[in-house]
Design a protein around this nucleic acid. Structure first.
Length: 569
RNA sequence: UGGGGCGUAGCCAAGUGGCCUAAGGCACCGGCUUUUGAUGCCGGCAUUCGGAGGUUCGAAUCCUCCCGCCCCAGCCA
């Protein structure tokens, strides 16, 4: 059937191209000759940071452009200067690029078209299809009617074309205050579709615009600006989310009645929802401004910058959006699905290292004091080409507190009194004693090692069930490690009330005495590494030369821990 | 008793009248492998497509009715 397009630079070979109703439409449009090329656009409003829901739209629009050898524009929908800021513009560009997409020459702003948009507004007035209304916002609402009752015409609806034109020009000239007058499209106050009940298309807003400064005091709203901007840019397929579906008749009304240079069409898909996550701009903003998180890029945030800081690879996010597909039905994807993508990609590329998060000191009684041995450890056992690094072994080292139990159940195959385990890449050791403090807490473990098992295998062929990780005490690097849980305790935060009530108070845990193997010394900020048997960790930007900080990206799958947890439950 | 959408397994989602006793992914459950209780590999997981009728030799796909869920009454996008 359809030939698979060649992989592009942003498309890994294993990123399969999925089929969906939008790509079906595009294929038909191309086949029928209705279009000869494809132009899409991603049109964010610069009033917040991008999140995983935007990533779905970005991957869709840019992905389609790549697959069909078309073009995807990045267009800032900057029609509301009271809400928009340059800071967001810069952050959005960075995020789109980080995700792996390139808009080339096609960085646009709706504000680039203000003059054209204005003249089309006059065009509508001249065709008696738009009028100036003096009604207040409250009155307009009253006149609009309700969902079940039709609206009624504004008393100003039948002004003459000449008067409308004169008034509109005065609006532009700044002769009125905010809210005194608006320009409305003259459509149908009785329409069942409320968007068609004479929608406001220009409002007076004496505000400085980040790009046009004080050139304008009237600004077009979304409905008037968006479709016409699409037409100017010759967008072929204008893809947006479901809630704009009943704006489409209005979109089409403008495109039909205005002398626009092309006739784009709008298609809608369902926006993304994720369990244990909040994705509305309002809520995300609130989490930041009310300091529930450290910022837009807090590693617990579902923002692109949050995931980046957390250590998620861009390819995992792209792959995720591919896997979940595109449809029109409202859906909530389990975050575990995203996390599975992250693990899958990290498993392939992440370097392996050893780190002990909650250290427990071990002393090998029959190992010479002051001696250091070096072992060769694989950087990634699943990747033959990843090479090796050296790890030091000494008489004293740290193991994970969780890897020792004084009185273990049968199925615990880590260290316990009298039991033998393998130290990864080193020796078999057997626990001979447990030292405790006055509070009866375990402070140190004594062991013996078998020199014959160097490298991790016994010449006599005996097996051990467990292999644990460790870090040599004299060579250990100290680090702070930030462990994360989902930001919310409920699958659907706020489902039964206030979403802030569902915030997980345990979502961040800081471990400060962690011991890392020496090879971790100069880990580049942002690099994600697997701490063996624990999970993936990424060096945080707060790191300084004297204070190393890692963010937990995602834990390894843990069937042992999971079973234990469900037994306790 | 306004308008617009959606309903296929726990969560997504292919499917557009016969090759569907319904792809694929996530989750889950078994087994094998394993110096990460990770990874990998193998196998299992909807006789059924919101429900009821109907059309047809044949329906998840067409028709009718019903049920459920979502969106819209900003001079936000």
């Amino acid at each position: 059937m359809n030939q698979k397009p060649p992989p592009s630079n942003t498309q890994d070979a294993n990123e399969d191209i999925t089929q969906d109703f939008i790509r079906d439409i595009i294929n038909k449009d191309l086949k029928s000759g209705y279009h000869t090329s494809v132009v899409t656009r991603f049109p964010p409003e610069p009033n917040g940071h991008l999140h995983i829901g935007h990533a779905k739209a970005i991957c869709l629009n840019f992905g389609i452009a790549n697959e069909f050898s078309g073009q995807c524009h990045l267009r800032f929908d900057d029609t509301n200067p009271s809400k928009e800021e340059q800071e967001f513009v810069d952050a959005i560009k960075e995020d789109v690029q980080w995700l792996g997409f390139d808009w080339g020459e096609h960085l646009h702003h709706t504000s680039d078209y203000f003059e054209q948009l204005y003249s089309w507004a006059e065009y509508l007035i001249n065709k008696n299809m738009a009028y100036i209304d003096d009604l207040s916002a409250i009155q307009i609402r009253e006149y609009r009617g309700t969902l079940r009752e039709p609206g009624k015409n504004s008393p100003f609806r039948d002004r003459s074309i000449a008067e409308n034109l004169a008034l509109f020009r005065k609006m532009r000239a700044g002769e009125f205050k905010n809210g005194e007058k608006v320009l409305r499209a003259k459509i149908d106050m009785a329409s069942g579709n409320i968007n068609l009940r004479d929608p406001v298309i220009y409002r007076i807003m004496h505000a400085e615009h980040p790009r046009t400064g004080n050139a304008w005091c009237i600004y077009p709203n979304y409905d008037f600006a968006h479709g016409q901007s699409d037409a100017i840019e010759k967008i072929t397929h204008s893809i947006c989310t479901i809630e704009f579906e009943d704006h489409r008749p209005l979109y089409d009304w403008f495109i039909t009645n205005l002398p626009v240079p092309s006739k784009p069409r709008q298609y809608e898909f369902a926006r993304l929802n994720l369990t244990y996550t909040v994705l509305s701009k309002r809520r995300l903003k609130q989490l930041v401004s009310e300091k529930y998180v450290s910022g837009w890029d807090d590693p617990r945030m579902p923002t692109i910058s949050g995931y980046r800081r957390r250590g998620y690879p861009a390819v995992a996010i792209r792959d995720f959006t591919n896997r979940i597909g595109i449809s029109k039905s409202n859906s909530t994807i389990e975050v575990q699905s995203l996390e599975a993508c992250v693990r899958e990609h990290l498993n392939q590329i992440a370097l392996r290292r050893m780190a002990v998060l909650k250290p427990l000191k071990v002393v090998i009684e029959n190992y010479p004091d002051g001696q250091t041995e070096e072992f060769e450890a694989k950087n990634n056992p699943n990747d033959e080409n990843s090479g090796t690094r050296k790890i030091q072994f000494t008489r004293e080292f740290f193991i994970e507190q969780d890897d020792f139990m004084e009185d273990p159940p049968k199925k615990f195959f880590r260290l316990a009194p009298g039991r033998e385990v393998r130290l990864r890449y080193a020796y078999f050791i057997t626990c001979t004693a447990v030292l405790k403090n006055e509070e009866k807490e375990i402070v140190e473990i004594r062991c013996t090692y078998d020199p014959e098992t160097k490298g991790g295998n016994a010449p006599d062929g005996r097996k051990v069930k467990g292999t644990i990780h460790w870090v040599a005490a004299p060579y250990a690097i100290e680090a702070e490690i930030r462990q994360y849980e989902h930001l919310f305790t409920k699958e659907i935060p706020g489902e039964n009330g206030e979403f802030l009530d569902d915030i997980n108070s345990e979502s961040l845990k800081i471990l400060s005495n962690c011991k890392l193997e020496s090879a971790l010394k100069n880990t580049p900020i942002g690099e994600t590494i697997q701490f063996e048997r624990l999970g993936y960790y990424s060096a945080d930007k707060d790191t300084s030369s004297s204070h190393l900080i890692f963010n937990q990206t995602i834990e390894l799958r843990d069937t042992w821990g999971k079973n234990k947890r469900s037994e306790n439950a």
